[in-house]
Each structure stands twice: as structure tokens, then as C-alpha cells.
């Protein structure tokens, strides 16, 4: 019986609020408050209730009746007032005068969000040139000359020893050359790879790189910092794993994976049915790199990480063709 009373209360509340004019409201009154209405019916039902329950139920039912009457009266007042107003002079349904809506490019938005998370962790932003020297792009980062590691990033050359940077890592070197530890920087920017253009690869794209060098920085901190980032950016419930890999400028190096946020790790098209997404490369800064910028490697250790912005934006927004980002169709841009 209690349940029944509550059901009627809920149903009444919904219908009263739905009524947009006095006529509709009158129908609600007939349905609930009239002599044969739902509330009157409840009073009828009370007769068959055991005596012990009557006082409590009676109280509940009376409250419903009073509340319903008050709500009905108030609604009626509101509706009749609005109907009294003259409607002829202004057509309020005319559209507002549209203003152009500005949008940041989805890649900028993705970069901004990543920057913001690391900035709250005490990182600041550094940038560097896109035309780089062989030394900053490779040599200082511990790529031996003529090593297969250089094949990992096919390079556009401009002149002897001058190239288009293949990653944002040269900014690490430039930053460390200019300042003493502690260093805590993130470095967003455009990079270039000599690859055939397709839906999945472009000759240039964006990366964001991070670097943290100080006394007592360990692989544990690397994991902690990147997991904290992943939880902020991808959600608190993503799982993670780190797998050994190879970069010339970090050792030990690790690829970071998170559980696919679309399928929660069950496997779907986005994660190619493995349940995991590789989101960034990372590692402890190689002592050679620290030596190259004149840091004392016994005193200082550090970690670095890097991720591709286009890839992350593709995952986040469900974009499956990288070229869309550079076509700049305003119907595309205005969705973000």
C-alpha cells in the first residue's frame, strides 16, 4: 500500500510538471484529484487495510492529498498568468542573432590538456626549433653514427648535418644546456618523418615530450608520474603496464600501455582486439645524454617520456584518418 501511494505521488508530480497550459492541467486534476481520481481510489483502498497499519498509511495518504492540491493550485496560478500576457507584440520564438563560435584545433586542445596536467605537477613548457642539427637530433641523444637506431626515424635532410627534427627530444638537450638541475619541462612541438602519406601516417605530426632531472629521481618516479598522468587524462579506472623497449637516449626504456578505455580491456577495433593501447615511450635518461650536457651523472638521474598528439587525439575523438586534422574543414573543427 505504501508503495502504491508513492507511485501515485510520483506519477502526479510528473504529469503536473508536464502540463503546459490550463487545459492540460485540468486533465491532470480529473485523473488524480476528482471524486473518481487516483487519490480518491487510494482512500477507497484504505478500507481493506489491516487496522494496525491504518494510522501510518492514513497519515501518508492525507499528506499526498494536501501536497497534490497545493502543487495543483500553484501550477494553475503560473499557467494562467502566462496565458494572460499579450503574445502579439514579440515573437519570442524568433532565433537569437547568431555569433560566430570560435574553436581551438582538436590537436591544440589535446596538447593543452596534456600540458595542463603536467603543469600542475610542476612542469613548465619549453620549445625548440624544427630545423635541427644532426648533433641535437641524434648525436647528443646517444644515437651512434650509422646505427640501425637511426632507421627508427627516417629523416628529412636539408643540408649536411642539418635536418628536420624527427622528435621533440632535441629540446631536452637545449633545455639542459641552458639550465642546471632540477629540470622539469614539457616540450610540445611539430616533428617530421620521411614516410609515405596515408590515413595512418603523415610526414609531420606533433609530439609532446617530458623531462625530469634531479637528485634521487628513479624508475619508480617515472612510473608514478606517468600513471598519475594517465589517470588524470584517461580516467581513474584505466589499468596500466610498462614494457621494456629500446631508445638510444634512455636506459632502461619502457613503453607505457593503458587498458583500452573504449572496451575496458575486453578487446575492440580501437585496441585491435588486444585490450591495451600503447600511449607513450619513456625511460631513464641515458647517462651519456646527461654527460653530453655537462651534468654530473653520479649526482643526477632523470626520466623522459614522449607521446604522439595525433594518435592520442585519434583515440579520444574517434578520428580514423589523420589527414582530417590538416584538412581543417570547419564542419570538422566546429565539433570540438
Amino acid at each position: 500500500m505504501t508503495e502504491k501511494i508513492n507511485q501515485v505521488r510520483v506519477a502526479f508530480d510528473i504529469e503536473v510538471s508536464k502540463a503546459v497550459n490550463v487545459d492540460e492541467l485540468e486533465q491532470v486534476r480529473v485523473k488524480f484529484l476528482s471524486r473518481n481520481g487516483a487519490i480518491a481510489q487510494l482512500f477507497e483502498d484504505m478500507k481493506s487495510v489491516p487496522v494496525s497499519e491504518k494510522p501510518a498509511l492514513g497519515k501518508l495518504l492525507n499528506a499526498l492529498k494536501n501536497d497534490a492540491q497545493v502543487a495543483f493550485d500553484e501550477r494553475k496560478k503560473t499557467l494562467s498568468q502566462s496565458q494572460e500576457k499579450p503574445t502579439s507584440s514579440i515573437d519570442l520564438t524568433l532565433p537569437g542573432r547568431p555569433k560566430p563560435i570560435g574553436t581551438k584545433h582538436p590537436l591544440t586542445q589535446t596538447m593543452d590538456e596534456i600540458k595542463k596536467i603536467f603543469m600542475t605537477m610542476g612542469f613548465s613548457v619549453a620549445t625548440g626549433p624544427e630545423i635541427e642539427t644532426d648533433y641535437y637530433n641524434f648525436g647528443a641523444l646517444n644515437f651512434p653514427p650509422e646505427h640501425p637506431a637511426r632507421d627508427m626515424q627516417d629523416t628529412f635532410f636539408i643540408a649536411k648535418d642539418v635536418l628536420l627534427r624527427t622528435h621533440t627530444s632535441p629540446v631536452q638537450i637545449r633545455t639542459m644546456e641552458q639550465q642546471k638541475p632540477p629540470v622539469r619541462e614539457i616540450m610540445p612541438g611539430r616533428v617530421y618523418r620521411n614516410e609515405a602519406v596515408s590515413a595512418r601516417s603523415l610526414v609531420s605530426f606533433h609530439q609532446i615530450e617530458g623531462l625530469c632531472v634531479d637528485r634521487g629521481v628513479t624508475f619508480s618516479d617515472l612510473k608514478g608520474t606517468l600513471v598519475a598522468f594517465a589517470h588524470q587524462f584517461y580516467g581513474k579506472d584505466v589499468r596500466f603496464k610498462f614494457r621494456p623497449t629500446f631508445f638510444p637516449f634512455t636506459e632502461p626504456s619502457a613503453d607505457m600501455y593503458i587498458s583500452c578505455f573504449l572496451c575496458k580491456g575486453k578487446g575492440c577495433r580501437m585496441c585491435k582486439f588486444v585490450g591495451w593501447l600503447e600511449i607513450m615511450g619513456s625511460g631513464m635518461v641515458h647517462p651519456h645524454v646527461l654527460q653530453n650536457v655537462g651534468y654530473d651523472t653520479e649526482e643526477y638521474t632523470g626520466f623522459a617520456f614522449g607521446m604522439g598528439i595525433e594518435r592520442i587525439a585519434c583515440l579520444r575523438y574517434g578520428v580514423d584518418d589523420l589527414r582530417l586534422f590538416y584538412e581543417n574543414d570547419v564542419r570538422f573543427l566546429q565539433q570540438f
Partner: peptide
């Protein structure tokens, strides 16, 4: 963007 412009990013090559 407050002034109602859409940001674009174009190829540098």
C-alpha cells in the same frame, strides 16, 4: 576563439 575564429593547423611541408 573568444572572437569567434576557428583555429587551423596546416602542413609545413
Amino acid at each position: 576563439i573568444g572572437a569567434g575564429f576557428n583555429e587551423v593547423l596546416t602542413y609545413s611541408l
